[in-house]
Amino acid sequence: MVHVSISAEPLFTIGPVTVTNGLLGAILASLLLASAAIYITRRARLVPTRLQTIVELPFEWIFGIVKTQGGQTWRTQLPIIASIFIVILTANWMSLLPGVGTIGYYTTEHGERVLVPFVRAAAADLNFTLGLALLSFVVFVSFGIRTQGWLGYAKEVLTPEPRWLSPLMGPIELISSISRIISLSMRLFGNVFAGEVLLGVLLVIGPIFVFVVMGLELLFGAIQALVFALLSMTYVVLATMQHGEGHEGPAPVGESEAPIAPQDVPSGG
C-alpha cells in the first residue's frame, strides 16, 4: 500500500518557523541554483566550456521566447520570467533524483507505520506553487500599474471593451485576474503531485515501468516550468497592453516594428 500525504510533513521547527520536507526541497533547489550561478559566472568565457553551454541552454531558450513574444516590456520582464522558469525547472528535475521522497524516517500515524521523507519534491507542496503564483500575480499587476498608472489599470480591469457590457464584464475580468493565482498554483501542484503519486504506485505494481515514467516526468517537469513562465509572461503582456491595440491575441509580436518578412520569422522555439 502506498502512503500518500497531500501536504508536506513537518520535520523540525526553528523558532516560529516549521521546516517541512517540501521547504527543504525548495531550499536545496535554491542552493543548487545559487552555487551553480556563482560557479559558472566566476568562470564565464566568451567561448563557453561544456558545463557553461549546458547551463546557458535553458536560459537561451527562455530568452528567445520572451524576446519574440514578450511585447514591448520584454527586457524588464526577462529576469523575473526566466527566474521563475529556471527555479521550477530545477525543483522539478531535482525531485526525480534518487532519495527525494524515498529516504526518511518511520513514524506512526493513525496506527499505521508511514515513511516521512527528509526531502520532498518542492512543487508537490502547495505552499511553494502558491508562493510562485502570488509572485506572478504581484508582477503582472505591478507591470500593469507601471505602464498605465493606477487609474488606467483599474479602468482597464473594471471596464473592459465593449464599454456597454462593463457592468457584466468588469466583475468577470476581476475574478478571472484573481483566479489566475489559483489556476497557476493548482496546475503546477497537481502535475507534480500526480507525478509523484504515479511513481509511487508504479513502484509497487512493477518497478520496471518506473524508468519509462521517469523519462516522461523529465519532459513534464520541463513543460510545466515552461507553461508557468509563459503564462506569467502572457499575463504581463495582457496587463501592459494599451487600449486600442486590440484584445484578441495573448501575445503581440513585434508591435512597433515593420511587418516581418516571411524569411525573418524566428524559427525554433
Binding site: 519574440t68 503564462l231 495573448p250 501575445a251 520569422v265 524566428p266 524559427s267
Partner: peptide, 16 residues
C-alpha cells in the same frame, strides 16, 4: 513548417 516558431508559444499556452 516555418510557422513552428510562431505557433509554439500559443500552442503550449492553449494546451496548458
Amino acid at each position: 513548417p516555418e510557422s513552428y516558431g510562431t505557433l509554439f508559444v500559443p500552442f503550449v499556452l492553449g494546451i496548458a
